[in-house]
Write a protein that binds this DNA or RNA. Structure first.
Lengths: 171, 171
DNA sequence: TCATACTTTCAATTATTTCTGAAATAAGTG
DNA sequence: CACTTATTTCAGAAATAATTGAAAGTATGA
């Protein structure tokens, strides 16, 4: 591989890791994801360990997490007992998977929590302002939840036109 | 304040902190924000220190960060040399500020990074697949950037109706 | 102006998260 | 089944991030 290409790939992997970190995702997990995305062929855990200089355990755990997120899948080649990993190929599908997981992991729990707070706060006059604010936030979080739910269920081809329509209306 | 109301507020503050953490935001920063959101009156650094059991320095730094994000503003009362802090009141405006900041801090740098990678990768046949994948990701990140840009520029009243209308169309 | 009440900063500390490596487990092979 | 090779797990180590507290910096009202 040309030196420039190699270095460009490394740069991309690092940037993707950086971004992951900013959004609350393990940096190594994001780097593994990046590596798989730009790899033409399936990779083994050893390939990843070597490429990113991480331990076997680390590679294993992050690969599992990526599989749990639906961003990577396992693949085994016949007549080879090694396990291979392949990234979801399509960027839009990836985006949908991420939306689905974040909705489930991070929005739904907040919605429940706010609901519980509303219940616990009671209906005293004293709590009125608090309830009002909570309801306002709930509306917002629910809308986000709804949006991510929609995105999470879309198929690749369906997303782009709809998003663009939406943007036009907002312009 | 009734015991239930107090405990409901505490629960909310903790949940909000939790959520912040999941999205890559300092947990204490999110708790301070939550506290200010549900507080009727402006609070001083001392109020926050006491309420959340954090040090003066910690309170100061996280308050500054919230001000930088445009989620909180400083307010001073005449004949009182203390500084007070008030949360942005409107949840939608808050949402817009967050969109704006995250776009600036976390999407724009990734766009530049991918651009740089494309430049560095060169135009060899060997790099074709890499360029293709990068362009696909770039399209996606740019769209997200565009969406956040739109949201970040909206004013309160304008956002909700438009988003809701379009969501119905997507149903 | 200046004493003082308040705020910010930052080196040191503490807490949390992430990572490693080796042991345990599983899976494929002959 | 016994053996080999691949994978997972997890306790401890390392790295990173958050927090403290005290010194330095500011601004206000008398």
């Amino acid at each position: 591989m040309g030196a420039d290409l190699k270095s460009a790939k490394e740069r991309f992997v690092e940037s993707w890791g950086q971004m992951g970190g900013a959004w609350g995702i393990n940096k190594t997990m994001a780097r593994v994801h990046a590596l798989l995305m730009i790899s033409d062929a399936p990779l083994t855990a050893d390939d990843i360990m070597k490429e990113l200089a991480v331990s076997r355990g680390n590679a294993s755990m992050n690969l599992r997490a990526l599989v749990d997120w639906g961003l990577v899948r396992r693949a085994s080649l016949p007549r080879d007992r090694k396990e291979y990993f392949v990234s979801e190929k399509d960027a839009w599908t990836m985006c949908c998977r991420i939306a689905r997981e974040r909705k489930k992991r991070e929005l739904e729990p907040v919605i429940s929590a706010i609901d519980d707070c509303l219940k616990e706060a009671g209906s005293d006059k004293e709590a009125a302002a608090f309830r009002k604010k909570l309801n306002e936030l709930l509306e917002l979080v629910r809308l986000l939840d709804f949006v991510l739910g929609k995105v999470g269920n879309q198929e690749r081809a369906a997303v782009l036109p709809k998003v663009l329509t939406l943007l036009k209306a907002m312009a």
